[in-house]
């Protein structure tokens, strides 16, 4: 009787063996997902900046690591890339004049970061450089690569500094909060002068300082109704727009005289 019983026991065992490599012997592979409640945001006349909330989830988190808070999430909202000229003023006969300049290709117009903790506490600086993550680590490609590294370094730093000063590059430490073991919420700043165009939301998952996975989504930022129309008309029908601007001025001048006439 021992033979058949052993045979019967062997089936579940072999099934177990066949299934186990994915689950039991290596840890589960975590991944990250983000979702936007809308794929387009409209800027209205009264727009003075806003907070954009992005929800996301961790898939297959290790409960132990999650409990110890060793998962970190960095969420970035990156504006459309555009070429930028950085100019430096120098004194010429006592007057401050733009002299040196450096052109960079494909610089994101805006770059808002939200993190669970300060970036330097999450991972090694080299990691960020490798991922080109964070305003300080973004790679800016100079148009003329023959310029001296010192010059490029100087203008890159100035570019980051100016972007941060205008609120276009921002960092919100603690802007990512875990609502449960799986669910997190990220709050990124939209500056009052946030550029229109296709923005890219990206979420980076780190586990104990190691980069694990990235997920991204697209967000369209546009001017709403009236502002958008004015901008469109000014660019697409610039002659008619000019004629309209002149007519409006003449009408205002004429009405002003009619209403307030004193002579």
């Amino acid at each position: 009787m021992a033979g058949p019983r052993a045979f019967a026991a062997a089936i579940p065992l072999s099934m177990l063996l066949a299934l186990s490599p994915a689950t039991a012997q290596t840890p589960p592979v975590e991944s990250i997902q983000i979702g936007l409640s809308t794929d387009a945001i409209s800027i209205t006349a009264g727009f003075s900046g806003a907070d954009l909330t992005i929800f996301g989830s961790l898939e297959n988190p290790d409960p132990l690591i999650a409990r110890q808070g060793r998962y970190d999430v960095v969420v970035v909202l990156e504006g459309p890339p555009r070429p930028v000229v950085v100019r430096r003023k120098d004194r010429v006969l006592g007057v401050w004049v733009n002299l040196d300049s450096e052109t960079f290709e494909n610089v994101p117009v805006s770059y808002s970061v939200a993190t669970t903790r300060p970036l330097q506490d999450i991972a090694e600086p080299a990691k960020y450089k490798q991922l080109s993550l964070g305003a300080q680590n973004l790679y800016m490609k100079p148009a003329d690569e023959t310029d001296s590294p010192a010059t490029i370094e100087e203008f890159t730093a100035a570019l980051r500094d100016r972007k941060a000063a205008t609120g276009l590059y921002s960092e919100n430490v603690g802007g990512v909060q875990f609502l449960s073991q799986n669910l997190f919420r990220a709050t990124v700043r939209l500056a009052p002068n946030v550029p229109v165009g296709t923005h890219k939301a990206r979420a980076f998952l780190f586990k104990s300082g190691m980069f694990v996975k990235e997920s991204s989504a697209q967000l369209e930022i546009r001017k709403s109704g009236f502002e958008q129309s004015v901008f469109r008309v000014a660019h697409d029908y610039s002659f008619l727009y000019g004629v309209f601007a002149i007519s409006l001025a003449m009408l205002t001048g004429w009405l002003g005289r009619l209403i307030f006439r004193k002579d």
Binding site: A234, F239, Y241, G242, V243, A245, A249, T252
Partner: peptide
């Protein structure tokens, strides 16, 4: 007219607010 067509730098909203206060 020329600024509007070559540089697209005329802002009618801005101009109108200034004119309205101005007259």
């Amino acid at each position: 007219l020329v600024h509007a067509t070559t540089n697209q730098t005329v802002d009618v909203i801005l101009a109108f607010l200034l004119m309205a206060g101005g007259v």
